[in-house]
Structures are given as C-alpha cells and as structure tokens.
Amino acid sequence: MPIIEDVSFYLDQNEFVTLIGPSGCGKSTIFNMIAGIVPVEEGKVFIDGRDCTGEVGQVSYMYQKDLLLPWKKVIDNTILPLIIKGESVREARKKVIPYLKLFGLEGFEYKYPFQLSGGMRQRAALLRTYMFSKDIVLLDEPFGGLDAITRSKMQSWLLEVIEKVKASVLFVTHDIEEAIYLSDRIYVLTERPARIKEEVAIHLPRPREREIVTTTQFNRIKRHILLNLS
C-alpha cells in the first residue's frame, strides 16, 4: 500500500501552513520527500517554480526529536549548519550570538543539551534550523514531546519569533488547536494512504493572543476540523 496518494499543496511567501492528520498517515514522509532525504516515486517538489524533487539542502528542516548533538554545547549545536557550510567556529558563533536572545537561549549557550529542559532544547533545535537560513522552514511536530503548559508557551513564542524573522513555515501536527492557533491555512489529511481531505483557511487576526483559542470563531473552526478528521 502506498504511503501517500495524490497529495498536492502550496506554501506562499511568509505564510504559515499546517498539515494535520492522524499519526502514521505519512506527514513525516511528505516532509522527508520535500527535504530530499527519501526518494519520491511519483510527483514533484517545486520551490520558486524550480523543480527541486529529490534535492537536499533546499529547505530548513526540524524533526520532532530535537536531535541536538549531546557532545556539543548549545551554541555549537546551533551553528551546526554553518560549520557544515565550511565556516570556522569563531565566525559561526559570531553570527549566531545576535539570535540567542530572540530564541530565549541567553545564558544557556555554554551548557550541554542534557542540562536543558525539553522546551529549551526545542528552542535550540529551532535556532539551529533557522541558522540553515533557507526561506522555507519545515517543522515536524516540534512541540509533540512537550507537556501541555510548555507546549502552549512555545506556540506563542514561535509566533513571536516568526513575526520577527519572517519565514515561510510548513508545519506538521496532530493537535487541532495548535494548528488553528498558528496557521494561515490548514490541510487536513486522511488516514494512510494520505490524501488531502480539506483545505481550511484561518482568518483569525494577527498578532494572535493566547486567549484567541477561547473565542467562538476559533471553536467553530475547531469543531469543523474535528468532525472532518473523525
């Protein structure tokens, strides 16, 4: 049985688009195909109109696991993409320092990942993803492993960061509230094999306050997606 079937979607500049679907429906596989690390049997990936199918290095990609290198201090983890591009540690560190504050990592830069909480580790992983500095950022359930309170804080924080750094984000989650709170548009996927069931545009004003999740408008969208997913 194929993992993905006839899935077609787009992402505009500075847009926040979420793929939502049940676990195991193929969301991560779609991301892996966009990132060029699993072969695509059928279909194509276009970036700025150029066919990038199977090419690596075209998007910034963050996994659900933080995948920080345990043997490197936080700051050296965040500069990993720069090191891979061939920059020296000194140069790279200089470049990342201005972002430490925005990403809430100030004071933690010389700690090892093991000394950080789950939320802080995701921040470090996100900064590392950002340092790869591609216009398109893929975030695969970045807050999936966090407790509810930390997760909610991280969502608001993510909105703030994206407001400042301007990025086009493709997001994956199976949390409906998270999807609505963060996104401009949502694609609802079916069970495996993944197909697009529906596209939902979220016309909630930005910047979004946390309280927005309690409004009737928010809940109407939530109810709609919930019914559609089950």
Partner: peptide, 22 residues
C-alpha cells in the same frame, strides 16, 4: 541515530562532516 544522519544529509553535510561531527 538514523534521524540525525538524515538531518545532516538534509543540510548537505559531506561524508567527512557526518563522520567528524556526528
């Protein structure tokens, strides 16, 4: 970790970088 390996590949890491960094 296979995912870490894939992550580095997605960053276009060379074989040498994958070896020495990870």
């Amino acid at each position: 970790d296979q995912d870490l390996l894939n992550l580095m590949k997605s960053m276009k890491a060379s074989r040498w970088h994958i070896f020495s960094l990870a």
